[in-house]
Amino acid sequence: MNWKFLSRKKKEENKPKKSAVREWLDAILFALIVSTIIRGLLFSAYAIPSASMEGSLLTGDYLFVSKIAYGPRMPVTPISIPFLESTVTGAKIKTYWEGLQLPYYRLPGLGKVQKGDAVVFNYPAEAVDRPVDMRTHFIKRCVGTPGDIIEIKDAQVYANGKQVANAPKAQASYLVTTTGADLNPEMISNLKIDVRYQYAPNSYEMIIPPASLSEFKSYSNIVAVKENIEPKGEYSPQIFPHNKKFKWNEDNFGPLLIPKRGTTILLNDSTLVLYGRSIEVYEHNKVTRNGADVIINGIKADKYTFKMNYYWMMGDNRHNSEDSRFWGFVPEDHIVGKAMITWMSIDSTQSALNQVRWNRVLRAIH
């Protein structure tokens, strides 16, 4: 007779059963662990808060973002409250502890960031000093990858001399001249036109979706519609690198080399203006000047080799997007993932019964 088996069976019978409360707590803990792993390594949900990606993505779209597309980024700040933003809105209470910081590391992914991808990343130029993975999330379209020479000519992006295809529903702004007659608000709403400025009773700047442009021009009170493009050589202080040496603006910019891991540049006044923030802030070096000499980490240097890859991101709504043209490069350690699916879309300007944009639910992102 198997006495061991009988003894084990007797012990199991004598073992006290879990209470209903304990079973619920175990189930909740298990669900939290599983969901945290899924959110950290596979995908997360994000909301579109602004119009910078219209008409591809709309304000009120809710997205699934794949982290395995480019490889899951391991937490830089591992001690944080899951499923919450870095601060509690209003009170600005941190939901993380920055006493423990881990080095950047990314697991292997399904691929690399490609031109045309809609990418979620942490905002590089955030004024508040906090860990990379706790910074505000942005979503833009990648138009330049490491090693590319990026240039914008008359609002069209080029990489290495080749035109980068615009998103199918990319938007531009137009200078509109009317007869002076009032514009019908219902028409403006139906055509999904954003009136940015009114300069005079008959003069406007508008963002007009491509699908609406032809119909809008056909109205009798529309005299002229001209794409609004800033001329080449006109300096804009809001535009990267915010230096008069580079007379660049939103629509005419560059050429500019996007740093690639292993790329070496000579250090001089011009390259420090363009790449100084990347060298010092993103790659954690101490950069000082001693007359004409550049000192990096206490050592005189006449060149620098980049440790990371960088990307150039722009919104599809080109004249209503704060993007790389304004703050520069996106380092690889800021990349979160690739936007894949719009799982829900809410139009807060509509009545309660009409707020859900059903035609955008479970829609693939292109």
Rank of each mutant, 00 (worst) to 15 (best):
N2I: 13
S19G: 15
W24V: 13
W24F: 12
I33W: 03
F43D: 00
S44R: 04
Y46M: 00
A47K: 13
I48R: 00
A51V: 14
L58H: 14
G60A: 13
V76L: 07
S80H: 11
W97A: 11
P103M: 05
K112V: 09
A118H: 08
V120S: 07
Y123I: 08
A125W: 04
D129F: 05
R130K: 05
D133W: 01
F138A: 11
K140A: 04
R141K: 04
I150M: 01
E151L: 04
I152A: 03
K153Y: 01
Q163L: 12
V164P: 01
P168L: 06
G180T: 15
D182C: 08
P185E: 07
V195I: 15
R196C: 08
N202F: 06
M206V: 14
S212G: 10
S220I: 15
E227P: 01
P231G: 08
P231Y: 09
K232L: 09
P241N: 10
K245H: 10
E250V: 14
I258Q: 05
P259C: 11
K260W: 02
L272M: 14
V273P: 09
G276Q: 06
S278Q: 11
V281F: 08
G291P: 05
I295W: 10
K300C: 04
Y311C: 02
M313G: 07
D323C: 07
D333W: 06
I341N: 08
I346T: 10
D347M: 01
S348E: 13
T349I: 02
Q350S: 09
